[in-house]
Design a protein around this nucleic acid. Sequence first.
DNA 1: GAAAAATATGCACACTTTTGCATAGTGGGC
DNA 2: GCCCACTATGCAAAAGTGTGCATATTTTTC
Lengths: 186, 186
Amino acid sequence: MALAQAILTALIDDDLSGYELAKDFEISVGFFWNASHQQIYQELRKLSDKGWLNKREVTQRGKPNKIVYGITLAGREALSKWVLGPTKTQAAKDELLVKLYNLSPDNAGHLAAEVQARREEMMRRVYLYEKIRMRHYADPATLPTRRKGVYLALTAGIRQGEQFLAWCDEALELLATVEAEQARQQ
Amino acid sequence: MALAQAILTALIDDDLSGYELAKDFEISVGFFWNASHQQIYQELRKLSDKGWLNKREVTQRGKPNKIVYGITLAGREALSKWVLGPTKTQAAKDELLVKLYNLSPDNAGHLAAEVQARREEMMRRVYLYEKIRMRHYADPATLPTRRKGVYLALTAGIRQGEQFLAWCDEALELLATVEAEQARQQ
DNA sequence: GAAAAATATGCACACTTTTGCATAGTGGGC
DNA sequence: GCCCACTATGCAAAAGTGTGCATATTTTTC
């Protein structure tokens, strides 16, 4: 059920349309909760039916009209209530690590390429988040309360990402030795 | 669809029953792919219908009989094929971090408690995995290929866990200052 | 001038995951 | 003797997620 709350969270500061949300999700709460546009549109309708969001159609020139959603008082209350409730332990699902359990000379090359691809993706992410942190969250002690929380989430993402990059390097090294071994034996 | 492959992976070395899988999942592949027992039983039946697993009933004394599953040649082939296919980027969903975006003096105490609980859970995990690594994966260079992969997955889990513990400490410190501020203002 | 990409929203179906319940025997503690 | 925990398996329904497709306009690129 946390998609609803992730959307509400994204709408605390700004009113956004489904399309804007789907895009901006990546560069805000989306680091910690991602969703496709289909999911977002559906959820937005549910939330406005519940009265947690209000909507207004904005006519645009040169672009299709958009439906902009804003959080209501009831929405804010529901969100606050959710925060105070119990938190589910994280899912922890990673195909790549399961695949590594099946490492063999046959697939070492493929897995190394996958690790490499992940590494690059994570590099971009960490870079982006680092930039946001430096610009807007440089001195956590002086931030207003709510933004201290955002700082912590951002920091978690960055640290996790940096750790992952270091791990990738170790993995690529070891995978290279497996590949080399196979090449020698052929 | 990766639950199927996670199960197959867990059954590479040992034949296990659904109950054993559900339990042992935590201390093997389950660090990277968890599932409830209902899911596991269902998936086991599907996999044995497909011919990827074979099953045999084992009569026990003092306990209900169990159905033990083993991976077939077809299962191994399907698994190998899956490993060579494209890998989905990780889900990245964490309620706790979304909740942090909503930090306020009201919920700082609650969130600190949640972080603390996660910290303790992660401590146990890291400890367990560290123990396994030291005992069975101390010298990665000398391991057979497949176990090198397990070593890498294990290392990813441990590092990620240790990083998380460090983050928890930082988070708890900052959350404590928020709580202290609130106490002063009352 | 045509094709592609971006803006903007949505339906329908399939698959996955979660939740709640059901059954049934054994062993241990009080 | 009763209750609880553990072993062991499973069904059914609901909720959540993902995939593919559909539509319509405008701006940008070749």
